[in-house]
Design a protein around this nucleic acid. Structure first.
Ligand code: MN
Ligand code: MN
Ligand code: ZN
Ligand code: ZN
Lengths: 144, 144
DNA sequence: TCCCTATTGCAATAGAGTTGCATTTGCGTA
DNA sequence: TACGCAAATGCAACTCTATTGCAATAGGGA
């Protein structure tokens, strides 16, 4: 058990270093947090969690942005003027880019897999450019 | 010609009043501006234009929001933390809700018609809720 | 034309994120 | 293992977009 945690810690440290960054406590805690998340987290969600560790919000911002630039995280804005970050893990379920659904009522964010445009739409979209991200908004089932 | 403009003016005033709002110079100018636009305009784009008329930016914000609430405009956030507004004209080409494409490089916004999800995706999306808006992001053809 | 209330201008305020700078610390190297 | 320096951090000030309070102004129905 303890051995497990130690291994996890080491693998997180390694990932950070392989991205060209230093494995600081704040960064390790951030990745641990995102590792256990089922949807992208906002800066304030991460900052709240790391406050116990005495990490400043500016540091959280810088780390999230730096790790996104380094390719460890993916950063998106889902229409509510707040940045959200999620893990870019090769093996993970949400490793690669995928559509998101945002409830315009309660703000809940869901990661969607398997959502695609029609072949015709794909063709038409080339007229505009190369699509890299799909965002769907609407009313979630809880909000009716 | 002059008669034409007068008729347009009257129809704009009428539309504002039918929405339950007063037809003020600032609102009329805003609608005229949006009437001639081919993509949604930001608050600052509208505010810059109305500055010549001596309209305050707070007034522009209030009018855009109020007219959106009243159903004359549609308000959206396309991922760059700026509100954009477009006309909700029954007859107009972009009258009803439609997908938008945003270039993550240059910020250009395009209104897309005819872009749809696959039937399978529509079915899967019901698991999350009712989709009311589709936003696509990527690299426009100008930006490569 | 009059009156009431919606609307406006102006300034202060809010929220999310960014930045400058002095201090601390990870980690490659000796 | 100890050292040195660039990277990272804490803290405060600042930017940008948008919102709000309040007194003055002006639509438009009666
Ligand atoms: Mn996701
Ligand atoms: Mn549009
Ligand atoms: Zn909801
Ligand atoms: Zn572009």
């Amino acid at each position: 058990m303890k051995q497990q945690k130690s291994e996890e810690l080491e693998s997180i440290k390694l990932a950070i270093r392989e991205a060209g960054l230093r494995a600081t406590p704040a960064r390790i805690a951030t990745l641990k947090l995102l590792y256990g998340a089922t949807s992208p987290l906002t800066h304030s969600e991460v900052a709240d969690e790391l406050q116990d560790l005495g990490v400043d919000k500016a540091t959280v911002f810088r780390n999230l942005n730096d790790m996104a630039t380094a390719g460890l995280l993916r950063r998106t804005e889902l229409g509510d003027r707040v940045w959200r970050f999620e893990l870019v893990s090769k093996g993970g379920e949400h490793g690669s880019a995928h559509p998101h659904f945002v409830c315009v009522d309660c703000g809940t964010v869901s990661c969607m897999d398997e959502i695609k445009l029609t072949a015709g739409s794909m063709r038409l979209s080339q007229e505009f450019g190369e699509i890299t991200e799909i965002l769907l908004r609407g009313h979630c089932n809880d909000c009716g």
